[in-house]
């Protein structure tokens, strides 16, 4: 009956630790993608798929710990949501990697794509910093704003890219479709990371 009041801290610490691991996996996957774009080495794509699987395990671990009673019930929904968003982001990276296995990015767009990928990685880095701030209990408004700045930049870049994409000629329908999917996934990633940042600040608020 009172167990929760006396030794629950272990569970909470585990949840926070695993959340951090989850984020690190995301960053690692983003880096892999950048490396792939730089050199075109497809081994990086396989690594992304591996990382995504690992992320699934971490996510399940977090959810079961929460279910065991970590954190106050009214905090749990937002934690669930945060974890789900990160998981979705990893999923998205995996899909992107799978797409890259059979499409080739047009050379004139490669530079911008690479830049977006780099910014995505940086954005995830910011999210990790924000998460650490949250764990320390400090104000994370500034951190979340930084995440949003990246999102805005990526959005601008994408807008520009989108105008040029129409000029690219494709060989067949599936190439074109794959390319379209790839670019929409590229920009969706930053949206998701931004959402994760917002949920994080919501979590911070609900504890004050």
């Amino acid at each position: 009956m009172f167990k929760r009041f006396f030794y629950s801290e272990k569970n909470e610490q585990l949840v926070l630790k695993e959340m951090r691991t989850h984020l690190e996996l995301l960053e690692q996957a983003c880096r892999c993608f950048v490396d792939f774009l730089k050199g075109g080495d497809k081994r990086f794509l396989e690594e992304i798929v591996e990382i995504e699987r690992e992320g699934d395990i971490v996510r399940r671990n977090i959810l079961s710990t929460l279910y065991k009673g970590a954190f106050l019930p009214y905090l749990r929904p937002n934690i669930y949501r945060f974890v789900e968003i990160i998981d979705e982001t990893l999923d998205l990276l995996k899909d992107k990697a799978r797409l890259c296995e059979f499409i080739s990015i047009p050379p004139i767009l490669l530079d911008d794509t690479l830049q977006i990928a780099v910014l995505n990685t940086e954005m995830v880095r910011m999210l990790i910093i924000a998460f650490d701030t949250f764990v320390a209990g400090d104000d994370l408004r500034e951190r979340v704003l930084a995440v949003r700045i990246y999102e805005k930049r990526i959005d601008d870049l994408y807008h520009d890219l989108f105008l040029r994409i129409t000029k690219v000629s494709v060989e067949d329908f599936w190439q074109g479709r794959g390319l379209g999917d790839f670019f929409s996934l590229l920009v969706k990633l930053s949206d998701l990371v931004e959402d994760a940042g917002d949920v994080l600040s919501l979590l911070h608020l609900s504890l004050s």
């Binding site: 910011m126 910093i129 500034e142 951190r143 930084a146 700045i149 990246y150 930049r153």
Partner: peptide, 11 residues
């Protein structure tokens, strides 16, 4: 402005 903010966050 953005850069300086991010700089601050990176610490």
């Amino acid at each position: 402005m953005y850069a300086s903010l991010i700089e601050r966050v990176r610490g």
